[in-house]
Write a protein that binds this DNA or RNA. Structure first.
Lengths: 198, 198
DNA sequence: ACATTTCTTGAACAAGTGTTCAATGTGAAG
DNA sequence: CTTCACATTGAACACTTGTTCAAGAAATGT
């Protein structure tokens, strides 16, 4: 068979390995734990290769931010196989799913948020991703409540996001699961409340 | 009068100047912006003096964390001059006050939170402060609802904190003030809801 | 006046940082 | 085989980092 291009399936393309290593280090030790050498070590790769695939350290972090943002956006993507109500409810419950409530993901989000606060460059990317998430959520609310005015849908989406952000931030401090469940229920109340008259 | 110990009131004790400088840098540029030299420069002080007042960089950050935590705890301190209802309501409204909703404070909190996620040492301090805040809030709820069982008070406090955390985190992304106001109202609903039967 | 403790300084050190780059390896095309 | 573009390596560079420390200034006590 000769030397395979991919030995034992372990050797996926190094670029994603490097990005993955950066994400891992960021979530575990924060930005000060992400040095080019540490990333290279974690990815099992020589130092120079990190700078080969990513021009800058900045580019590397930017790529990490991008990957997380894209993943987040998937949480509010429409799913035509479900009814509008189910779609919305599922999206609301997903934020407390086992895969999202891991320390790794929450920690990663937190560190990226902190980074955005420190660098104007990241702030823009983060704010744009936030807006897209808000839009996605508002769209889900809108399809579930066709009669509701769009402005009201956006307001509800904003209110839901506040509670969601609070949830995962507080989850990092090890708040009890019961409080999380109550908060999920609260987002549902907001989402499915009868139209208010004003 | 001779040379005053304090010239023009500007020369407060250097130790607090150094701590203040560290807080400022942390809130503006994150942990990677807080180098001993940068702190010294910002405080208008020689490099050596930072290590004179704070053994470590760790100690300096710890002191910063401490000062913010203590400030936070003041937000839920009982105020005997008010009725229990007023105390609780005031505490709930304070989190959207002009002094707390500044980028500086929010950013500071965020970076300290991120730091706690990266270092076990800070994590303990932060978790302890969080628990004390929760206790304080639960106590306020309890005095406002003398009939409510203590467990229920703690649950409500936890629910309120989730929304509060979400509020200030989302405030960093520039969410509109209307959403903040609605969230405040939501914490009031939680706090002053009639006892639920289960 | 002196002695002593407390501040304050900036140079020095070892260790770590991001980035560059010449050298080498690898696999496919001619 | 030769060629050639791509992938990969680690040494080397200039620079920043936290910490230490001998020296001196300032305040305080005697």
């Amino acid at each position: 068979m000769g030397i395979n291009t991919v030995n034992s399936g372990e050797q996926v393309d190094r670029q994603s390995r490097i990005l993955e290593a950066a994400l891992d280090l960021l979530s575990r030790h924060g930005i000060s734990g992400v040095s080019m050498r540490a990333v290279a070590r974690e990815a099992g790769v020589a130092l120079g290769l990190v700078n080969y695939y990513f021009d800058d350290k900045m580019s590397l972090i930017r790529a990490a931010l991008h990957s997380v943002d894209e993943h987040d956006l998937g949480l509010v993507a429409p799913d035509p196989s479900l009814t509008p109500e189910e779609q919305l409810r599922k999206a609301l419950h997903r934020v407390a799913g086992a895969d999202l409530l891991t320390t790794r993901y929450l920690s990663l989000r937190l560190h990226l948020w902190a980074l955005a606060q420190a660098h104007e460059d990241f702030a823009r990317i983060n704010a744009a991703a936030f807006d897209r998430y808000l839009d996605g959520l508002a769209a889900l609310v809108s399809t579930a409540h066709p009669a509701l005015p769009l402005k009201e849908c956006r307001d509800r989406a904003a209110d839901i996001v506040v509670v969601q952000n609070g949830m995962w931030l507080t989850a990092l401090l090890g708040i009890d699961k019961a409080a999380i469940q109550r908060s999920i229920a609260r987002t549902e109340q907001i989402a499915f409340a009868p139209p208010r008259d004003n």
